[in-house]
Computed example of a mutant assay.
Amino acid sequence: MRSQKYFWASNLRFLRKRKKLSQDELAEKLGVTRAKLNAHENGRSKSPPIDDLLLCADFFRMSVDTLLRIDLSKLSELKIRDLEAGNDVFLSGSKVRILATTVTGNNEENIELVPIKAKAGYLGGYGDPEFISTLPVFQLPNLPKDKKYRMFQTEGDSMLPVPGGSYIIGSYLMDWKFSKETPCVVVTENEGISFKMVSFMEEERTFILRSINPLYEPFRIRAEEVREIWKFEYSMIRELPTETLTLQQIGLGIAEINRKLEDLKL
């Protein structure tokens, strides 16, 4: 039987530094000695007392199981805030979706790029921090800090007027219960990475994926097949869209032609 790996010491140290507290400050808030806290953080407490576990779980607003069994340093800031808000897999019993991400030297989240050539690898490595770290990354100014962003390159013409080869920036969605049809990048087991208009059928626990291009039929996928959903935020295209005329412009053009024909009759 494989032994269980625990992350108590590293998680305690990670969460303290995340709150920008010294060992003295955290020890005072917890009501323990600095020596005891230091022993916990350095792994010298092989069997932490249950009182200390509960004390830290209450302070950091996470379950004891999460503090022990999940390497919190591998989670995004967005996911940690989600755990603090009470959406903890061990508290709610729901299936946790752990998002692998990368950060800058200042602990700011990058925007990772998933080009077409990396799509096959992404399907197998979307949850692997080592794979995600191999993707190109960049930063954009003035983006809200409460969202996690990722960029995907599109293929085909199913979402025209957004042409194939364009780049879609999406924000990571934890809640998949859409109130209305929403443009999203969806990562699934069988369909791969798709940029579609997405609707959620809650009673059936299925998604309807619709292309903007009417030549493509909508299709359904079960919620269990979905691995990630990224809500459309921005797009980058490599060519200007083909100019199209509105009905009003066409009507004005016809009226002008008719006027000129009337002038010729005179």
Rank of each mutant, 00 (worst) to 15 (best):
residue 234 Y to I: 02
residue 27 A to H: 10
residue 88 D to E: 02
residue 229 I to R: 05
residue 14 F to T: 10
residue 69 R to Y: 13
residue 151 M to W: 03
residue 226 V to W: 00
residue 206 T to G: 00
residue 263 D to I: 11
residue 134 T to D: 05
residue 108 E to A: 13
residue 187 V to K: 01
residue 18 R to L: 06
residue 49 P to A: 14
residue 47 S to F: 14
residue 155 E to Q: 10
residue 12 L to K: 03
residue 106 N to Q: 13
residue 22 S to P: 02
residue 235 S to L: 12
residue 220 R to G: 02
residue 45 S to P: 01
residue 196 K to T: 04
residue 10 S to Q: 10
residue 153 Q to C: 04
residue 255 A to Q: 13
residue 176 W to T: 08
residue 83 L to A: 00
residue 84 E to V: 11
residue 236 M to N: 12
residue 144 P to Q: 06
residue 179 S to K: 11
residue 130 E to M: 02
residue 159 M to F: 10
residue 7 F to A: 00
residue 10 S to W: 00
residue 34 R to G: 08
residue 2 R to Y: 00
residue 44 R to N: 09
residue 85 A to Y: 03
residue 112 E to P: 00
residue 251 G to K: 13
residue 235 S to N: 14
residue 64 V to I: 14
residue 82 D to M: 01
residue 212 I to L: 15
residue 37 L to P: 10
residue 205 R to E: 09
residue 165 G to K: 02
residue 170 G to H: 01
residue 3 S to M: 07
residue 99 L to C: 09
residue 92 S to T: 15
residue 10 S to N: 09
residue 243 E to A: 15
residue 114 V to C: 14
residue 172 Y to Q: 03
residue 59 F to K: 02
residue 241 P to S: 03
residue 82 D to H: 12
residue 261 L to T: 09
residue 81 R to F: 12
residue 101 T to F: 11
residue 250 I to C: 13
residue 126 Y to G: 00
residue 57 A to Q: 07
residue 33 T to I: 02
residue 108 E to L: 11
residue 146 D to W: 05
residue 77 E to D: 14
residue 113 L to S: 09
residue 217 E to N: 15
residue 243 E to Y: 14
residue 104 T to C: 06
residue 31 G to S: 09
residue 57 A to H: 13
residue 121 G to A: 04
residue 29 K to A: 02
residue 197 M to E: 02
residue 60 F to S: 11
residue 255 A to N: 13
residue 102 T to Q: 12
residue 66 T to I: 06
residue 75 L to I: 04
